[in-house]
Write a protein that binds this DNA or RNA. Structure first.
Lengths: 336, 336
DNA sequence: CTGAAAGCGCTAACAT
DNA sequence: ATGTTAGCGCTTTCAG
């Protein structure tokens, strides 16, 4: 059921068939009707692959993300997918959580499939090998990284200043009299490191030494937060403020703290990160930092779109401020 | 940078280049080396679209889902994507949340792109038009529906008996003496309706009339659950057991109940649905029904794989039992 | 072991 | 307005 069979059955040339399919040129309404009838009858479906080969254009964009299960990324992917679909782009999705080999697989795949562009959510490209891969990709199609950064300057980047927000929280709490901080994080990705940096910078800028802040790497999710907080408690570490790199971590920590008799926020203030719906569900509700993923996703998609239309090159790097959301797990303070 | 340029630079024919690229046939190690060197130098990337046209095979599978933001679907997508990627399949993802037109867009797209198969998560195809679409798709590639059902019997289906679990909860609670039930749901999709049916069947089979169970449609998420429960309370509806179609709904309801002075589980037992991580985060922790999405996803992927390899046709329809998970938001009872 | 040549299904000049 | 034809980049007989 290709264009030839249609042409034959309709008694016209393949060019004409192609024309009616694509509305590309004038076709007399008589032949048009004739062809369309055959199209219907045969349940003809054009071959996108043949078309792509002929036109050298796929309407395909890659969505590479660190983990589509992360609610923030899921939200971004959803938005990106729906927006791009509305413009007739299809999304090839991949989770590049792992090592270089995995990233290589996805990037090469997109290159081979001649994708029109890539949108990355939280995918980290740190070392030399990864950056080279990124450059290779950027040479052939626009690459937009959302919520993660890289030294490779060939790619577009949009991030929010989460580290500033974290630092601001520490400073705000310090001004309120807090002197002993703890930080729970679950990954060592660049963006995770950036948040951690914010924590440490906050301490420094508050005139507090490293001894005032314990940063502990824990397992992912509620369980990681729970056991992490238990560990802190069991080891007798004293802290009146607990920050985390993830809401689920904070939710777990919250449970552990309360089970151990701590009052939140009176004894210890707790902060999550990402401002997910989870924050509303805990008791007390969770203060968090809103990294404004929707904004980032929006900006990322727009950037990719204009880059693909190669109309005007947008900025290489964009940053928007993150927002601190104070709820019941912390005592209110002013943010400078 | 196509196969011709490579052939020329290496002083061989394109057939030979094709052979070394695909390791398809014997090539003397001398020429092989020569060709591979050129491949490297030119940073040659094969064209998947040309290859697909020639071989009539894309390694592409569609992942159509109701909403990739739903944690359960996100988990499934992740699993499916990683598993398929390991076998060299790329995933075209789409959210077919909406009307027929949207589903049509995705299905036709997959057909045009000559996808090798489709995996659907929670996507509903109810009415005549949608079912015809499904049939059209199934005629050309294997279609596997996970966590949703349809009357169209041309597609593979794997679901869990969530309705049975819901009914069992109602019956279990009824045996414990509960007489007044409420049910909060946020959608009218087939699978949502099935759950609701379970609720109603549970009442019936407990010898309770419809007057003993109020089913209310509410907005999505925590907020929907919160306002829904408030509505029930404000309207003076008495109930000692509250079931929901979603954990987030239950989380919201939980807050509202507790704020209004109800003790959970003493005054009212609350059940979520999906057994997400959220259940651990609430206070008290949330009882829920585990629809075993991971199992379903696993089964769905396996089904698709074997259907694509057309080795042996697996069963058309598979069902696995769902599990009731009792936590602190309900008083323990025995499940028959 | 290697090369020549015919397609895969479609688009896009270029004719008519 | 419609038809002819030459690719698009690759795979795959079929010869040699």
């Amino acid at each position: 059921m290709n264009i030839y069979e249609v042409a034959e059955r309709a008694g016209v040339s393949i060019a004409t068939v192609s024309r009616v399919i694509n509305r590309s040129a004038k076709v007399s309404s008589a032949t048009r009707a004739k062809v369309e009838k055959v199209l219907e009858e045969m349940e003809y479906t054009p071959s996108a692959v043949a078309r792509s080969l002929a036109t050298n254009a796929t309407r395909l964009v890659g969505i590479l993300c660190a983990d589509n299960r992360d609610p923030a990324f899921a939200e971004s992917i959803f938005y990106a997918e729906q927006t791009l679909a509305a413009e007739g782009y299809d999304c090839l999705m991949g989770n590049a959580t792992g090592d270089l080999k995995q990233k290589d697989y996805y990037i090469k795949g997109l290159l081979e499939r001649k994708a029109d562009g890539v949108l990355m959510f939280g995918a980290s490209f740190e070392d030399e090998g990864e950056q080279n891969l990124l450059r290779l990709a950027a040479k052939r199609m626009p690459v937009v990284m959302v919520a993660s950064s890289t030294k490779a300057k060939e790619v577009y980047q949009v991030t929010s200043k989460e580290d500033m927000a974290v630092a601001s929280i520490v400073k705000g709490l310090a001004l309120s009299g807090h002197k002993h901080f703890a930080y729970l994080y679950d990954a060592t990705s660049p963006s995770a490191r950036i948040k951690l940096n914010g924590f440490e910078r906050g301490l420094e800028e508050s005139g507090l030494g490293g001894a005032n802040g314990a940063a502990v790497r824990v397992a992912k999710g509620f369980h990681g937060g729970f056991t992490g907080a238990r560990w802190l408690i069991d080891h007798g570490l004293f802290f009146t403020a607990l920050l985390t790199s993830e809401d689920a971590l904070a939710a777990g920590a919250l449970k552990a703290l309360i089970q151990s008799g701590r009052r939140v926020p009176d004894d210890v203030c707790v902060f999550g990160h990402n401002n997910s719906e989870l924050c509303l569900c805990t008791e007390p509700s969770l203060s968090s930092v809103d990294n404004r993923m929707e904004e980032l996703a929006r900006l990322g998609v727009r950037t990719l779109q204009s880059a693909m239309n190669s109309s005007k090159k947008p900025l290489q790097v964009a940053q928007i401020p993150a927002k601190i959301v104070q709820r019941d797990s912390s005592v209110p303070f002013d943010v400078e």
